[in-house]
Design a protein around this nucleic acid. Structure first.
Lengths: 234, 234
DNA sequence: GGGCATTTGTCACACGAGTGAAATATTACC
DNA sequence: GGTAATATTTCACTCGTGTGACAAATGCCC
């Protein structure tokens, strides 16, 4: 989730030339591109490959673009995906209907592929407020994802980036033991060639940071296994 | 606001025929019409008669239409007025620039006077969201959107355009961390090919501007993440 | 239109927090 | 008690950020 995997984009477009153009530019921008010319197939694919982004032509074979958009939004498994509509010039009313239907952005043909990619990327950067499950809490600790802020008993706890990532992972999976290697995998952006012992050090720093206000230690050491977040007595 | 007095309209147009045509139709629709052919005179009149609506020709004597528009918007006493631009056919780029400058609607010549009146009336009915929700506040900072003015502890804080956009975004989303890229997306009109580090500099300028009165720093640096507006202690 | 002030983007440099590894001390388990 | 695992401390180095300076771009006024 935190790691920088290639974003997937599904292109729904029945004009071969445009499809190629879009595919080329998104590939070049590091996206993994899948495409189809058919609306019904698009609905299957969007569930299957779980793209981060759908580029959707307004007028396509099978189910119309606007209908595809609506159905993607209605299906809870796919409702979250970002959607950019491609439409012909000058159809202002279409634009309104498209936004109502749930498209996130609109690009009118003819368009600059570079701009399309740029807007798509900006769209993916934008956080969707509705999707932010942004409060984690356990044993007197609160973590606000949006504000990137941690409190213990109401007191703000300053954490370094690594400490924050560690704690966030523990809060997302409380009372579950993770080995040092597992922790390196989830809380270190570049987890190659890092000593397992290093985890110990950061666990300690996290303990100190959290305990600054004098509370009990919520991080449990499980000998020869790893660590977990656990409010039960040691 | 509640009273149904005759709406006042100022027509800025140097073509005698068009001026007459517009005057006639707006009068018939119950407007009180004033007109001028000169841009500089328009700026005086708009303060004097406080119209509800300005019909503004793109190309006029004196100061150009776009410049008149800009100045009307910049003057806090007149910034709220509705503006409809009259422009020659086919100038899409003009249209864009006009909207950026602050025109509310665009009508291309030749136009139907009936349609012009209808759109003007629709415009007046339409509530301008930016002018309604026009007070943002957080941690001793007040931002008046309509007046385009910022105060801290009551003291007026002069801000450059970029600083203003940054602060406005933060005030609209307080205590939420934004990456440099996200800030470029929302606070820079043309965000292509701008270095991420540039954000740092403008954040600093905003800090200096806000802190001029000696208050604490409300902008929080979240290392390796971005910035947020946050009144809590570190 | 020309000259001036402001705004803006970029850079170079300095500083300090954050990080990873190593060395030593401590604890837990048999 | 012996051994292995973990805790703690320390240190060198990296990397992100703050800062001031500068040049280009923009807008403004006459």
């Amino acid at each position: 989730m935190a790691r920088e995997a290639h974003k997937r984009v599904l292109v729904v477009e029945d004009d071969r030339n445009i499809e190629e153009l879009v595919r080329l530019h998104f590939s070049k921008a590091g996206f993994e591109v899948t495409s189809t010319a058919d609306g019904d197939e698009a609905l299957v694919l969007v569930e299957e490959i779980k793209p981060d982004l759908v580029i959707l032509d307004w007028m396509i074979e099978g189910t119309s673009g606007i209908e595809v958009c609506r159905r993607i939004r209605r299906n809870s498994k796919t409702a979250h995906v970002a959607i950019v509509m491609l439409t012909a010039r000058g159809e202002e009313s279409d634009k309104l209907r498209g936004l109502e239907t749930g498209a996130d952005d609109f690009v009118t043909k003819p368009f600059s592929p570079k701009e399309l990619v740029a807007r798509a990327q900006a769209l993916l950067r934008r956080t969707r407020p509705s999707l932010l499950a942004d409060k984690l809490a356990y044993g007197g600790i609160e973590l606000d994802v949006a504000a990137h802020r941690v409190r213990r008993e109401g007191q703000v706890v300053p954490l370094s980036p690594t400490e924050y990532r560690l704690l966030k992972h523990f809060l997302e999976n409380p009372e579950k033991v993770y080995s040092r290697q597992q922790l390196l995998d989830v809380a270190w952006p570049h987890n190659e060639d890092i000593e397992l012992r290093t985890v110990d050090v950061h666990i300690r720093r996290l303990r100190v940071a959290l305990g600054g206000s004098g509370g009990t230690d919520l991080i449990r050491t499980v000998r020869s296994e790893g660590y977990s977040l656990d409010a039960s007595a040691a």
